[in-house]
């Protein structure tokens, strides 16, 4: 194992312990770890955005403008981008409206047909499938259909939720509660998984590197 890897392992293990120390109580070491994380994340993010986005899409085409005059077209999105930054200058903030209008209009034009044909209609079709072919499938489809109907009624606020509408809405709430329960159960599992991953690192990679069993 290289010296760099060993230093990296100790650094990562030390920072893990520092961050976990918050579980006991807030302390200066935790604050240090938190600020270090924010600083490193910001620096990393900036480098990634610069080298993957700003440099190849804006700066490089401008540098090569003499080789290919079409590269001058890149000035249009650059200027529109600068208009957005001008929101911080109150007297020039209105210029950002042009950029947002273009962005929102363009994206809405792309999104509406794609989302309707690619998500909304297929989801609707799968909700109202013909019943069958066997009893378990029929039960599943009926439960699904009842759930969709009752939940939609619950979110229909033009009628007061009394009488039949209120009762259907109550069934809708039950379905929503089951969905929240499933979602919360999955969330607990996810958070435990992250803890497992960190302790796996501490046991197998860090302590394992000291005992010769690291990997």
């Amino acid at each position: 194992m290289s010296v760099g890897t060993i230093i990296g392992l100790w650094l990562a293990a030390g920072l893990t312990i520092i961050i976990f120390s918050f579980i006991y109580k807030d302390n200066p070491l935790y604050k240090f770890g938190e600020h270090l994380f924010l600083g490193v994340s910001l620096g990393y993010g900036w480098c990634i955005y610069y080298y993957n986005d700003i440099f190849p899409n804006a700066i490089k085409p401008l540098q090569e403008i003499s080789q290919d005059s079409k590269n001058a077209l890149v000035l249009i999105p650059i200027i529109l981008g600068l208009f957005i930054i001008l929101r911080v200058v109150p007297s020039l903030a209105w210029l950002s409206r042009f950029s947002f209008a273009l962005y929102i209009g363009g994206f809405a034009g792309l999104a509406v047909p794609n989302v309707i044909s690619g998500v909304f209609l297929p989801q609707l079709t799968s909700t109202i499938n013909p019943l069958g072919p066997d009893w378990p499938s029929i039960i599943k489809q009926v439960v699904l259909l009842v759930g969709v109907f009752c939940t939609v009624v619950f979110f229909f606020f033009s009628w007061e939720h009394r009488g039949a509408v209120g009762k259907i809405g109550r069934v809708g709430i039950l379905y929503i509660m089951v969905a929240f329960g499933a979602s919360f159960g999955y969330t607990v599992m996810a958070r435990v998984s992250l803890l497992i991953g960190r302790i796996q690192f501490m046991l197998h990679d860090w302590i394992g590197s000291m005992t010769g069993g690291g990997g």
Binding site: V119, P122, Q123, T125, S126, L144, A179, A182, S183, Y186, T187, M189, A190, S193, I196, G197
Partner: peptide, 26 residues
């Protein structure tokens, strides 16, 4: 996907828009 997201993606699997769904560490 992560387990946090798995519950919200089941409708896509049920509709056949996801051919398979691998949720979380499990």
């Amino acid at each position: 996907c992560t387990a946090v997201s798995a519950a919200q993606y089941y409708p896509y699997y049920q509709a056949g828009q996801f051919k398979g769904l691998v949720g979380g560490m499990k």
